[in-house]
Structures are given as C-alpha cells and as structure tokens.
C-alpha cells in the first residue's frame, strides 16, 4: 500500500475513477466521472448550474462518498477514511466557499488565525506574523481589525482566501470564486489564484459556471453537463470545441442544446386559444 514519496509526487493529486453519485438512489447527480488533476496545475471544472460541480467538489473533499467508483485525493481513497484520517487529509487542503463563509463573530484577523489556533499550538507572536503574512498576500493587512460585515464582497472573498491558505495547503479548492464580483475584484481574485498557486507550489481546482471568465485563468478544463464530463482539454481546445453544448456555453448563446424555454405545453394551449 505505502508508496515511496517520490512516486507519490509523480501521480495526480486528485484521481476520480468512474465515480457515480446520487443524493437519492433514484436520481444520479454524477455519472461515470473520470478525471485526473496533475500537481501544480490550475484546473477548471465548468458547466451549467445544477450539473453537479459542487457535488463533485464535496466528493473530492471527502464530505460525500461516491456511490460507485473511487476518488483518490493526495494518494488516499476518500471513501475509506475514518474521521481522523479525513481530518488529517483536510489539513493539507484549503477550500474557498462561494460566499466566503467567514465567521461573522470574529474579526478578519481572528478568521485567518482560526485554523492556526485550532491546529498549531503555535505561540501567539508566530500566529501574529503568519496572519500578517497571509493578509499581506491578499493585500488586506490593513483590514485585520475589521469585522466581516464591514467588508465588501470582493474583500470578504480575499479574506476567505487568506484563511483557506493559512496552513499552506497542497490542494486549494474554489467553489464559484467569481460570482457576484465587480470587474476589479474579479481581476484581483484571478491574479491571486494564480499567484498563490505558484508561490505555495499548490494545486488549484476551480469549480465555476462563469466559463468565459474562468477560461482565462486555468491550465486545463473539464466540462460537465448533466453529471457527466462531456469535454476536456486546454482552454484553447475548449474554445474550439465542436461539441454544441460547450460551444453554446463558451459563446454565451441564449438558445442551443440548452433551450431558452423551460419545458412547457404548447403555447397556444396555455393561452386557451384551443377553446375559442
């Protein structure tokens, strides 16, 4: 079972093999997903809202176990881990939630210090220096004393980012990091994702439906629809994809394989023209 660390480093950091999952047995949300995420890359998992991206992310972080197939993260199958082993694995991962999920009863400083306090047993001076380091990395050292309610959406996202890299994770997961940001904040977050990934020597997974924006950030893309991976490749390959669904998404066309109209009875019948 135990492999040499060198071999481990050459293997993908996340390997999803043939994974299916459903919250209820009758309705599968993920079907036969296969993907591999190489170390050091920034990888996008893209697709329409409701196609199962967040669910896939929950499987990667071990919050859900696949119904079928295997999810290997950092060399271990997440489905087989007990609580302690799972928590040990999560200390090497950082996760940015969609709306930041900052602790509203703590200051910015305490939010970033939280993972260090819970796990480190570090002396207070060291925690202070580390918090300042992380806040400096996201440009918010001056905001350390503020509370989360005093922050704008973009700033809150950056603080959450600082918190998720507090323990220098090997793998950083982002759930819809671009939603609801103004163009400047968007630019800042895009730059930070790349900078932090490279400076920490980490691997990043970005789950998003903001396809056009995200294509400019990532090295590799998995494109999902209705619980399946329907396309994969570099951003150039995805932009040039002949797959009509991907094409509709990349170009933001209102009608296509994803119809403009929600399924409905004949328009005439609904207007009761038939009866007249």
């Amino acid at each position: 079972m135990q492999q040499s660390p060198v071999l481990e480093l050459q293997k993908p950091i996340v390997e999803i093999r043939n994974v299916s999952f459903g919250y209820e047995a009758a309705r599968p949300v993920l079907r036969d997903i296969d993907l591999a995420i190489e170390r050091g890359a920034v990888v996008g998992i893209m697709g329409q809202s409701g196609c199962g991206k967040t669910t896939l992310l929950r499987i990667i972080m071990g919050a859900l176990a696949p119904t079928r197939g295997e999810a290997r993260v950092l060399g271990r199958a997440t489905g087989e881990l007990d609580r302690d082993a799972l928590y040990a694995m999560r200390r090497k991962m950082g996760m940015l939630f969609q709306f930041g999920a900052l602790f509203t009863d703590m200051s910015v400083y305490e939010n970033v210090a939280f993972p260090m306090r819970e796990h480190g047993g570090l002396p207070e001076e060291l925690i202070h220096d580390l918090v300042m380091l992380k806040l400096q990395a996201v440009g918010l050292r001056g905001a350390a004393h503020l509370t989360p309610t005093e922050l704008s959406g973009g700033m809150a996202r950056r603080v959450a980012l600082a918190r998720s890299i507090a323990l220098d994770p090997q793998l950083i997961l982002y759930d819809e990091p671009f939603t609801g940001l103004d163009p400047i904040s968007f630019g800042v977050i895009v730059r930070l994702i790349r900078e932090l990934n490279d400076s920490l020597g980490a691997t990043s997974v970005i789950v998003t439906h903001d396809v056009q924006e995200a294509l400019g950030v990532v090295d590799y893309v998995y494109f999902m629809a209705a619980g399946r991976v329907i396309a994969k490749g570099t951003p150039e390959e995805i932009r040039a994809s002949p797959e009509p669904f991907v094409n509709q998404f990349v170009n933001g066309k209102p009608d296509g394989p994803v119809p403009f109209h929600y399924p409905a009875p004949e328009y005439g019948a609904d207007l009761e023209l038939a009866g007249a």
Partner: peptide, 14 residues
C-alpha cells in the same frame, strides 16, 4: 446557512 459550519469542517475542525 452561511456555510460557516461546513467551512469549519473543511478546516478539519469539528
């Protein structure tokens, strides 16, 4: 509701 509990769990804090 604001995912603070999930965030905690992701930081390996129960």
């Amino acid at each position: 509701a604001t995912e603070q509990l999930s965030a905690m769990e992701m930081m390996a804090v129960d």
